[in-house]
């Protein structure tokens, strides 16, 4: 299987008054046409990894890597202008909170149409039709009304589905979803995941799913990278996550309360400094 995306030795650094802070420290992985989960606590560098792929880290932040190859072409060699053709068109990103990623003073229809026409030379009416189709594809009822509405009129779940519609309309090869469901209720969460799952399967996209929710990732992804302090500490198949060997992964799993197995006290994660010292595990296939 040829990899869609190939990341080798990725570092993200932020210079600060107290020296350089390494948010991501030498991460390598590949992504095929699969659902790859990245899990870890806040501050483990999972979101930074996602952003670094799209070169969305602003100065003074520094991204270094041996290569970040998309279909064999190194993204690090591209100019900012060439990068803009990659973002959205070939790699899309869905951010955590729909409230902050939609433009509050533009109707939803205008925003989706803008996103589509930016990448495709089509007439307004064709773009409108395509946008309607896309909203239907993410299970939005009454898409004509939604096209006329403003983001504040939408619930969180609808906002997130609209974001997904917008991100998928240029038909990207890779979708990076950064905590796409953590602002949503459990019942809505499932719906959004099902939609993403269906679209990924139908279109044969690669998906990077960034989340702190282990059970969700175990359920939804094919392969999981577990990150700790900027490094990958373990790579495993999602359905075997519960047999994970690394004490950090086990600790995270054990600290979750479970309905079917009540306990008086929850286990608290005991951190071992050796975890952050150990070299990064490669996530290559």
């Amino acid at each position: 299987m040829s990899a869609l995306l190939d990341v080798e030795n990725l570092w993200v650094k932020f210079p600060s008054r107290h020296g350089v802070f390494d948010a991501v420290r030498g991460v390598s992985f590949t992504l095929g046409r699969e659902r790859l989960g990245i899990v870890g606590e806040s501050g483990s560098g999972k979101s930074m990894t996602g952003r670094a792929i799209l070169r969305l880290i602003r100065p003074p932040g520094i991204v270094e890597a041996d290569h970040i190859k998309l279909d064999g072409v190194n993204l690090l060699d591209k100019t900012e202008k060439e990068m803009r053709a990659v973002r959205g068109q070939r790699i899309s990103m869905v951010m955590q909170d729909p409230k902050y990623s939609l433009n509050p003073v533009m109707t939803i229809g205008d925003q989706i149409i803008e996103a589509y026409r930016l990448h495709n030379k089509v007439s307004k009416s064709a773009a409108y039709k395509k946008s309607l189709e896309m909203l239907e594809a993410v299970s939005i009822r009454d898409p004509e009304r939604v096209m006329r509405a403003y983001p504040h009129e939408m619930s969180g779940g609808m906002g997130q589905r609209i974001m997904i519609a917008m991100m998928l309309i240029p038909n990207p090869e890779i979708l990076i979803a950064d905590e796409p469901t953590s602002a949503l209720d459990v019942s809505v969460q499932r719906q959004v995941l099902d939609i993403m799952d269906r679209l990924v399967k139908e279109r044969g996209m690669g998906l990077i799913f960034i989340s702190h929710d282990l059970n969700l990732v175990a359920d939804f992804c094919d392969r999981v990278l577990i990150m700790y302090a900027g490094r990958i500490v373990e790579v495993c198949d999602a359905d075997k996550l519960h047999e994970a060997k690394h004490p950090y992964t086990q600790g995270l799993l054990n600290s979750l309360p479970r309905l079917d197995a009540p306990r008086d006290r929850l286990e608290v994660l005991q951190r071992d400094p050796a975890w952050s010292e150990a070299p990064s595990v490669s996530g290559r296939v």
Partner: peptide, 14 residues
């Protein structure tokens, strides 16, 4: 909060 921190806080509350 993160799941690992959640466990600490829930234990504290109990």
């Amino acid at each position: 909060l993160d799941v690992s921190v959640q466990a600490e806080i829930l234990n504290l509350l109990s």
